[in-house]
Each structure stands twice: as C-alpha cells, then as structure tokens.
Amino acid sequence: MSNFSVAQADLDGKDVPARSASRSSLLRAIWKNRILYLLLSPTIIGMIVFQYYPALTAFWGSFHSWDGRRARFVGLFNYEFFLEDPRLLQSWVNIFLLLIFNLASLAMPLLIAYLIYRLPNAAHRYWYRVLVVLPIIAPGFVFIVLWRWLFSLDGGINIILRALGVDSQVVWLGNADTALGSIMFMGFPWIEAFTVLIFLAGFIAIPSEMLDAAAVDGATGWQRFFRIELPQVQGQLKVLVILTFIGTVQDFGRALFMTRGGPGYATMVPGLRMYNAFTQENAYGYASAIGVILFIVILVLTLINQRLIRSTEQ
C-alpha cells in the first residue's frame, strides 16, 4: 500500500477502529499506572524546562546575532565564522590528543579496580575502595591550585627533577611545547573514583562458577583476565568509553583554569572558544553555533563508537 493509499484509508475511516482500540488500551495502561506517570512528570517537566528548552534555544540562537537581549537572523554566518577560524584545526587537534590520552588512561582505573577485586581479604578490599573514593570529597579548586603549583617554575615537579639531578627550569604551563602535555598529566595517576567503582562493580558481578570452571580447566592468570574477566566488564567499558568521548569533547575546565587556552593558543579547545564567546564577547549566537557543532561531533562520535563496539562483539 502506497503512502497515498494509507492516508486515503485513514480518511475513509477503514483503519480507525483498530487504531482507536489501540489508543484506548494505551490510555487504560497509562491510567492503570497513573501514579508512576505522575511521579515521573515533575522530572520530565524539569528536563523540558531546564535541559531541552535551553538546547533548542541554543539551536535557534546559532542562526542569530544574539547578545542575550536582541537577536537578528544571520543565517549560517556563525557556523561559517567558526569553521573559518584559523585556530580551529589546532583546537581540534588538541581535543583529539586529549581524547586519545583520556581513553588510554582508562587502563589505570581498570587495573586498580582489578587489583582491588583480586585482593583476598574483604577488609582490605573495603579499605582500598575507601582510599580510592576519598579524594572525591576534596573541592575541585584545591586540585587546580595544587596542580598549578606543581607545574610552576619552583613547583613540585621541578623540585623533584632538581632533587634527581636534573636542573629543570621548565615552566610547564607557560611553554607551548609542554602545556598540553601538562594538562594531560594533571590528575596523575588518573584514578578517577567513579570509574574504579564502575569497573569494580563489573568484576564483582562475575559469577564465581565461571571462574571456578576456568580454574578447573587450568586457565592461567592472564588467560583468566583476558578471556573471562575483561569480556565480562565489557558493558562497563563501553559506557565509560562513550562517557569519555562526551566528557573530553565538552570539557574546557582544565584549559580555562590552568592556562586560559594558552600560552598563545597552545591549549585552546572548542569548548573554551564557546565559553569565551559567551562570557567575553556577549556573542550568544556564536557561542550557540559552537555548542551545536560540538553536539553534532559528540553525536557522530558516539554513534561511530557504538557501531564499532557492536561490530567487534559480532
């Protein structure tokens, strides 16, 4: 049946009884679970007001010259302006390098989670878990201040290097060759508490029968890890990879607080360009266009990522 004939059938009313029955059963189901729908509705309304509406506003704003009060339609000008940015390539290269690093550094929480999981003593497992989670309570500002000092000329890293006999006079954040690497190095040893906990939860959920069977079959430690345990936390790994993609492309906090994107443009990322456009230039339309482009990039990367993971599974 062509689209036309479907429409015609609707108009003729031939399919109406079936559709009407299904609609009334849907309404009955909603009414039956009305408490659930009622409880969900404040959250959904909140999301519409505070998340979907601003996102749609940003999409609208990206086609306007908009200072927060007055808006004038400018078509694709904001997009063209961003894509013609002579610093665009460098900022995407920076993001790419950060992404590669952040994905690779997922190995650290994976390793720590695995080591904690393999500890034979439950009390030790508990205390190590506490130790990993404890830094969460320190305010982020302290983290920034500490790392800024560590990277300064007479800061911690140079003190250590000088103690080791290297006369280091490097201003780690003030040198275009070392600034981005320094931002990556921040947070060493890259043990993010929630990531460890997610991996740990995955390891703990592995059925003991499976491990017992592997032991009976004579699996070595490596075989057990790579053939049984790692595949069993694949779900967690997928989620974390996607979250890392999204987090890295969106993140500009470190560049903002550590270097303001400098020296020069050495640590500039698109998110920081967006932030600057918004806060320094009152260019809400331009900032919105960058935001929309970031959204598209994240969406595409996430879809590619999911597809790759699915094909690997198959």
């Binding site: 800024r148 000092w149 006079q169 201003v171 003030g174 040198n175 400098g262």
Partner: peptide
C-alpha cells in the same frame, strides 16, 4: 620573571 607565561599565582 622568566615564568611570566604561567607564574605561580598563589
């Protein structure tokens, strides 16, 4: 100062 591009602001 030689570290003027990123001094210790504390």
């Amino acid at each position: 100062n030689t570290d003027w591009q990123a001094p210790d602001t504390s």
